[in-house]
């Protein structure tokens, strides 16, 4: 319950933060909202030499409209994301996935960027970010670069953000008017998702015209269910959706744990994908 001793710096700009990470070396750790880092520190599962607290960097906070996209600062809290009128209007899926993260207290502190950079395979927002074709601005000693979702999530708890880099913001193309649903399957409300399905669809004449689907916790990284997306085009009823969802487990490689083995996770991926799409489509 008592972390190991560490140094602490509180930069007020991205450049300062990067400089602090470079100076801190391999054992430096970024603190965003801290809601994933603090438990690890309390249990002494991490022993950083220096904690770089990025919670007071104004330039990485806030939500803004940029043409066809919404740009969300990495340091924006979950609560701010889910409450944002812009997000609710243009990125309903992200609002819903974010509302299912942990609990109100954690959503008040935890940040979108922190959760994405932490890349917990059971986290709710990575699948939504994948489904929404997010791109990521990363700042490092060599300047800034932009990475797409497929390149951002690398492995379990591993992203394209290097040890001396800071995630600056997340850019998401607007999905205005799209139906959305995040189907989270867990044993208790507090528990992590056994499987989650982030689905958003554009309807046209009572049929699905376009679909984007991301899956939580069925692989080391969030999975885009592209074959389902393709099969859903034109679907206009529950049966068609269920048929399309049959391929939801394709390309997944779930782990087995005490709550669910791989086979069960793949089964859930199919069942829950159908349900999520039905709810997103209102069918």
């Amino acid at each position: 319950m008592i972390p190991v001793a560490f140094d602490y710096v509180r930069p007020t700009s991205v450049d300062e933060a990067v400089a602090a990470l470079v100076a801190g070396g391999e054992d430096a750790k970024v603190l965003a909202g801290g809601q994933s880092l603090m438990p690890v520190l309390r249990l002494r599962m991490a022993a950083p030499s220096v904690v770089v607290d990025c919670s007071r960097i104004d330039e990485i906070r806030g939500i803004r409209e940029e043409g066809d996209a919404i740009v969300i600062g990495a340091g924006t809290t979950h609560h701010a994301v889910m409450s944002s009128a812009l997000v609710q209007q243009h990125l309903s899926l992200l609002a819903k996935a974010t509302a299912s993260v942990a609990d109100p207290q954690i959503r008040h502190r935890g940040t979108l960027g922190g959760a994405l950079a932490h890349a917990d395979p059971a986290g709710d927002q990575p699948a939504a970010a994948a489904a929404l074709d997010a791109s990521f601005t990363i700042a490092g000693p060599g300047g800034r670069r932009t990475v797409g979702a497929s390149d951002f999530f690398v492995d379990y708890f591993t992203t394209a953000v290097g040890p001396d880099e800071v995630l600056v913001d997340v850019r998401l193309p607007k999905r205005t008017g799209w139906g959305a649903h995040y189907e989270k399957f867990n044993r208790t409300a507090q528990a992590w998702a056994i499987v989650g399905v982030a689905a958003t669809v554009r309807m046209d004449g009572g049929r699905i015209a376009e679909a984007r689907i991301g899956l939580t916790n069925v692989a080391p990284t969030p999975v885009r269910a592209r074959s389902v997306e393709a099969a859903l085009v034109g679907a206009g009823d529950a049966a068609a959706i269920a048929a399309a969802a049959q391929s939801a487990a394709d390309g997944t490689s779930p782990t087995s744990d005490q709550h669910a083995d791989a086979e069960y996770r793949q089964h859930l991926a199919r069942v829950l994908t159908a349900r999520a799409v039905q709810k997103a489509a209102g069918l």
Partner: peptide, 14 residues
């Protein structure tokens, strides 16, 4: 199940 993250005590929502 040696933590409250792994030992599932129901919350009000459950």
């Amino acid at each position: 199940n040696a933590s409250l993250a792994d030992y599932l005590i129901p919350s009000a929502a459950d």
